[in-house]
Amino acid sequence: MKSSSRLNPLIIGDIEIEHPFLLAPMAGVTDLPYRLLCKEMGAGLLYTEMVSAKGMYYNSPNTGPLLAKEEWERPIAAQIFGSEPELMADMAVRVQEMGFDLIDINMGCPVPKIVNNGDGSALMKDPVLAGKIIKAMADRLSVPVTVKIRKGFDDEHVNAVEMAKIAEQSGAAAVAVHGRTREQYYSGKADWDIIRQVKEAVSIPVIGNGDINSPLDAEAMLRETGCDGFMIARGAKGNPWIFKELCHYFDTGELMPRPEIEEIIQMILRHARMMIEYKGEYIGIREMRKHVSWYTHGLAGAAKLRDQVNHAESIGELEAIIRNNGASSVDK
């Protein structure tokens, strides 16, 4: 099957993104090592993990590593969360001074400890406050301010269109829309029609998010919504190749074959070495456990491999486990 779709560059403020495929901000996933792998595969825009504005204000030791970046990542966006307009603006200025190209506001995180503090998707219930936050930041910054929202807080309060209009009026340069409510978390099917409604309601770029796991999914979203860009979240977990596949499909109209087992092994081991270099062996190996689970999802013997990897303590042990299980997968 060949694509008949050609994509225009995604332009956010003064930032032009040739391939409009964005690596979504994901806590515990989109750290510096994984962003590098996705960048090499063709991701057009990278996001940090979400960072607490209050954490920055109180100089939490957790915020520094979250905002670590390299020049090769550009364009790169930092995503911050909070619900106090002036504090958000003050911390956004600090982030801008670190050299980020865009600053994104998280208004979609569904995690209870975030929502219960009035942050993340809790702001979907208070569009006026959301607008004040966006305006406070946009008035103070010279880089584009973007916003990530959801369909609504729950099925009785579907207000993505209202939120997007407020975002545009308040100075946002783009809005990303996840087609699920907060109450859905990540379950069920994403509602792409709400993305279409937002696209028709505002003139700033609209980035579609939800259930993009292949180039054909992106093409279907484009056809159904007319969105300007695609934000890839769970479809990128253990799958940096998705960006290469997306770029190839929309550039040539042809689907690429999925990576062979040896390529997956090489990617896992490279990722692990980068994690160790960045975070040290003790933390790096332990954080790789979830990544290995994602990389090997659906492969023969994956459950056995995950169990073994969860006991690995060093890069040597991890490599031996991966290679032994990789050979078994090929045999089968």
Rank of each mutant, 00 (worst) to 15 (best):
I114M: 00
T146N: 11
D14Q: 12
H178D: 11
K279I: 13
H19A: 07
R35E: 00
E313S: 14
W192R: 06
V128H: 11
H311A: 14
E16R: 10
A272H: 05
V93P: 00
K125A: 06
A122I: 04
A220K: 09
L102E: 07
A27I: 08
D14V: 01
E40K: 09
E277R: 15
E262M: 14
A302R: 07
R273H: 11
V115M: 02
R140G: 06
N8T: 12
V198C: 01
Y278C: 15
K132W: 11
D31M: 13
E84W: 04
I133P: 07
E263I: 10
Y282F: 10
M98V: 10
G152S: 12
S52Q: 03
E18D: 11
G284S: 02
I11F: 07
L222M: 08
I80D: 10
Q79I: 12
E200I: 13
T63D: 11
I15K: 12
Y47D: 08
V111I: 14
M98R: 15
L10C: 05
I103H: 06
N117T: 09
T225R: 00
E73G: 02
A68R: 12
V111D: 07
K332P: 00
K151I: 09
I149P: 04
E70S: 08
A122R: 05
M41N: 01
S170E: 06
M231C: 02
I103A: 06
R180K: 07
I276A: 07
E73C: 05
D191N: 15
Q308H: 09
F230Y: 14
F21S: 00
A160P: 00
A172V: 01
M124Q: 08
G82T: 06
I114A: 03
I17Q: 01
P20E: 10
N106R: 10
M163T: 04
H311M: 12
R6E: 06
P20A: 11
N106M: 09
Q79K: 05
H248S: 03
L36R: 13
S329A: 15
M274L: 15
V29P: 01
I264Y: 11
D126Q: 06
I204E: 00
W241H: 05
V51G: 03
S121M: 02
W241F: 12
R140Y: 11
D90E: 12
I12A: 05
N116D: 10
P257I: 07
S60F: 00
Y295A: 13
G152E: 05
I195N: 08
I149D: 04
M98W: 07
A173G: 04
V177S: 14
L318I: 08
G188E: 12
N62G: 09
N116Q: 13
I261M: 13
E16S: 11
Y295F: 15
M50N: 03
M107V: 08
I11H: 12
D307M: 02
D14C: 03
M26L: 14
A312R: 14
E245S: 07
I133V: 15
S203H: 12
M107N: 01
I285N: 05
I103D: 06
I283T: 08
G42K: 00
G44E: 02
L10Q: 02
A272Q: 03
V147W: 02
P25L: 09
R180N: 07
V128T: 14
R150E: 05
I105A: 01
G298W: 12
L318W: 09
A92S: 15
P112C: 03
H248L: 00
